[in-house]
């Protein structure tokens, strides 16, 4: 084409070719520098968050944080009830959500096979995975808290379970799909029923991936605040009852960070440091596990 037009093409004119080439490489260099800058900015955000947490969190950290419950400002309270509350609600939420998510993931990977219902379930589960978590809180408020008269720890667990389910569904389905079909055929060929094939062989082969999913789900919900505001509400007194309002670390941080008392703000930073370190540690463990499994 350039042979027939009068435009001085690189083939005809060596000076133009040189200039064009130089310009192309200059553009390339500028874009590359921009991309490196973007990555550095992204990493700087993470560094800034971690540095702020360490700097302000370590100042508020002391043994009383782990040994004392939340107390009125000025009386050297801790975060014990909030930490315990978060552990209870996260664990129960994961315990309720994981079996359901596992079964849904199994259904999608092993039974649905392109059926209308399977596609609908996968679509809805993916929507729920990214849906605003505050809506889960409002939903549980409407169906549990409001009709059964009051905020409760169990409502918080249910809200977290609803967030856990789609996470487990996604990882379980993905991991089960990675298992070669020859393995399944070998098991069926030995005369094993399908459910035994799934439970004894597929789950075992996909174990690392499924455990990773559970860990990631636990990491995700342990930092959730919005759904707990409407369900377990938070409790500044010591309470382990699942039928009464229950404290949690994120909600306590939220209440304390906005307060006017310096010792509460310090405690909020200490709590923020704790929850972030825990969440990031679980994330890294989960990733290492998955990588080791491969």
């Amino acid at each position: 084409m350039s042979a027939t037009t009068a435009i001085p093409g690189p083939a005809k004119d060596s000076t133009t070719a040189l200039l064009l080439g130089r310009r192309r490489h200059r553009v390339n260099l500028i874009i590359k520098i921009c991309c490196v800058t973007a990555t550095v900015i992204g990493l700087l955000f993470l560094a800034s968050i971690l540095f702020t947490l360490l700097w302000r969190g370590v100042a508020g950290l002391s043994l009383t944080v782990f040994t004392t419950s939340t107390l009125p400002p000025g009386s050297h309270g801790g975060l014990l009830n909030a930490i315990i509350g978060t552990v209870i609600q996260t664990m129960l939420g994961a315990a309720i959500g994981t079996p359901i998510g596992l079964m849904v993931g199994t259904y999608l990977a092993e039974y649905a096979q392109g059926s209308q219902l399977g596609n609908a379930v996968r679509f809805v589960s993916d929507i729920l995975l990214s849906a605003p978590s505050i809506l889960v809180g409002l939903f549980v408020y409407q169906i549990i808290v409001s009709p059964f008269g009051g905020f409760s720890g169990i409502a918080g667990c249910l809200a977290l379970a609803l967030i856990v389910i789609p996470i487990i569904v996604r990882t379980t389905e993905d991991m089960l799909r990675l298992i070669p079909s020859t393995l399944r055929e070998a098991v069926i060929g030995l005369g094993a029923p399908k459910w035994k094939m799934i439970v004894l062989i597929c789950y075992r082969a996909a174990k690392d991936g499924i455990v990773t999913g559970i860990l990631l789900a636990i990491a995700r919900v342990s930092g959730e605040t919005a759904p707990l505001l409407f369900t377990s509400l938070g409790n500044l007194n010591w309470s382990l009852s699942l039928t009464r309002p229950m404290a949690s670390l994120p909600v306590t941080i939220y209440q304390y960070a906005g307060s006017a008392f310096q010792d509460w703000v310090d405690l909020a930073w200490a709590g923020a440091l704790l929850i972030t370190v825990a969440v990031l540690a679980v994330n890294i463990i989960a990733r290492t596990l998955l990588r080791g499994g491969k």
Binding site: L43, L46, I49, G223, T225, I275, T276, N283, I284
Partner: peptide
Amino acid sequence: AIELLAAVPSII
């Protein structure tokens, strides 16, 4: 590191 940015809780 970029993925960890997604794991930081929103309250933080």
